[in-house]
Amino acid sequence: MIISEDKPIAEILESIENHSSIFIVGCNTCAAKLHVGGEQEILSMKSVLENSGKKVVGWALPTAACSIRSWDHLAEKDRSINKADALLVMACGSGASVISKLGTIDVFPSNNTVSLGGSYKGEVLPDQCKMCGNCTLFYFGGICPYSQCPKKLLNGPCGGCSDDGACETDNDKECVWELIYKKLDEKNSLYLLERIFEPKVNK
């Protein structure tokens, strides 16, 4: 799941300041699950824009904004899209990028994309993967230090981890290496920690 968040409304209004007829595109996958691009959020965005003097000509909620066949396919959902002079995409950057390919109309993102995460037992989990292109997740008990350690450390923790296990960069966050150690200990797999990892091949 791609984690994205609402942009401040003032920033959105500033970005579309030269456009008057807006069509809103949401995303019924990640953004809807995270309540930043589902039907309810589209409707409340619509009324915010209208209250700010914009005309909202219509809206669509494709299954996934990042996987759209064509403009016509999107227009099938609501023909009024052809009257718009801008699209506001309530989805991740990937969704907004794909929508931007559909034509020459100006496309504005209304979300800030922050990480590739997930959700488990109702809790949103950010930064589960940084898409490094060479998955080594198993060796860390299923907890990826490349994604979850702010220093991307593959060979063990930094010296900044506090005695009670908090990360140097955030007292409220447990050092991911503490979590990895505990998980591998539980699995009787501490031997995995002895492996020396080479630097990642950056893309």
Partner: peptide, 8 residues
């Protein structure tokens, strides 16, 4: 950056 860690 942390392109390399201290071990690397």
């Amino acid at each position: 950056v942390y392109d390399l860690d201290s071990v690397q």
